[in-house]
Computed example of a mutant assay.
Amino acid sequence: MSDVNYQEITQKGLWGNNPALVQLLGLCPLLAVSSTVVNALGLGLATLLVLTSTNSAVSLIRKYVSDAVRLPAFVMIIASAVTCIELLMKAFTYELYQILGLFIPLIVTNCAVLGRADAFASKNKLIPSAVDGFMMGMGFLLVLVCVGAVRELLGTGHLFADMQLLFGESARSWQLNVFGESFPNVIFALLPPGAFIVVGFLIAGKNVIDAKLKARADAVKEQAAKGSKRVRTTGSVA
């Protein structure tokens, strides 16, 4: 890519080509561990760091790796990044790492990570590739947090419980009791089928918003075309 549009990269990562809502990648961990905000944040931040670091590394070696070993090399880079993140979590957020369990190592198999490495980072310079990985990771993180917030709120009646697992003891007081003790907890929301339904509503909401934005843009174009045609007709008559 000779001309890099960072605004387009940002828009695609956060909305237009969101890994979870558009590409529908990484749904297995998304459905499994997003029962609370802290779980969603833990997995989302790990995925974001892996995407950013692997995109950067792949971009740096893109001219020195032949097509025959390109994909195996990318997988090795991803596995190395995931191993580093896993060791960091074991060192600083061990209890959260135990909760997330196997889904941290399984980031290696997340098609969004390998997909961005092959589709973007292998064809672009370092900074655009790092920005692309960061924005794709941020888009995935935001969806995870939204799903986690909805599920935690419906399932327990509060938000931001156990945040000390990620941010230390000072975050223990962050919990918000939104609905109070009398709220009838919807246990179904904490189960994987509940996550599936929440994600479905998010995808449906995005599609509705996209349809309205497209209709508005088409109306503006049509109005502009009519105005241009009117100007040309007036000029020819004159």
Rank of each mutant, 00 (worst) to 15 (best):
A195Q: 11
R172V: 04
L14F: 08
L165P: 05
L27P: 10
I78T: 12
R62T: 00
T47V: 02
D132Y: 06
G227V: 15
A130S: 14
V38C: 09
M135H: 04
M135T: 10
L48T: 15
T234Y: 12
G115D: 11
L87V: 08
I104N: 05
T47C: 03
A119G: 06
L213A: 12
G194V: 09
L114G: 14
V113Y: 06
L43D: 01
G155R: 08
C28A: 13
F188V: 13
V37W: 00
V199R: 03
K12Q: 11
T52K: 00
A204K: 10
G44P: 10
D67Y: 09
N18P: 12
V199I: 08
V237S: 03
T36W: 01
V147D: 02
T54Y: 01
G157F: 10
A195C: 09
A32Y: 10
L41W: 08
G42H: 01
A225N: 05
G13M: 02
L21S: 04
A20S: 03
I187A: 14
Q23F: 07
E95F: 04
L114I: 07
I187F: 06
A211M: 09
Q7G: 12
A211Q: 13
F160P: 03
T234A: 11
S35C: 06
L71P: 01
L190Q: 06
V37S: 00
V231D: 08
D3S: 03
L166M: 08
F140A: 14
M138K: 07
R116E: 15
L60P: 00
G194D: 10
P193V: 10
F92K: 03
E152Q: 13
M76L: 14
L142F: 07
G101N: 09
W174A: 10
R232H: 05
V75S: 05
K212P: 03
S129R: 03
P19H: 04
A238R: 15
S35W: 08
I187Y: 07
G235E: 15
G115H: 13
M1L: 15
S236Q: 09
E169R: 08
A238W: 03
A46P: 00
K214D: 11
Y6C: 04
P29G: 02
F196D: 02
S53H: 01
K90M: 12
V38H: 02
G26I: 05
A57S: 15
G227L: 11
L49D: 02
R70P: 01
M136L: 14
V150D: 02
A149Q: 05
A57Q: 09
L30E: 00
F134S: 04
I107V: 11
L31G: 05
A215G: 12
S34R: 07
L165E: 14
S59E: 01
E8I: 05
W15T: 11
C84P: 08
F201N: 09
E95D: 15
K125M: 08
L126R: 04
C28E: 13
F140I: 06
L106F: 15
D3L: 05
V231M: 12
A189Q: 07
L114R: 02
A189V: 14
V33S: 12
Q175W: 13
C146L: 10
T83Y: 12
V113P: 01
N207G: 15
R172C: 04
K214N: 03
L102I: 15
A20N: 05
A117W: 00
A215R: 14
L142V: 09
V220S: 10
P72V: 11
G115C: 06
G180F: 05
Q164L: 01
C146R: 06
A40E: 04
V69D: 12
K212C: 12
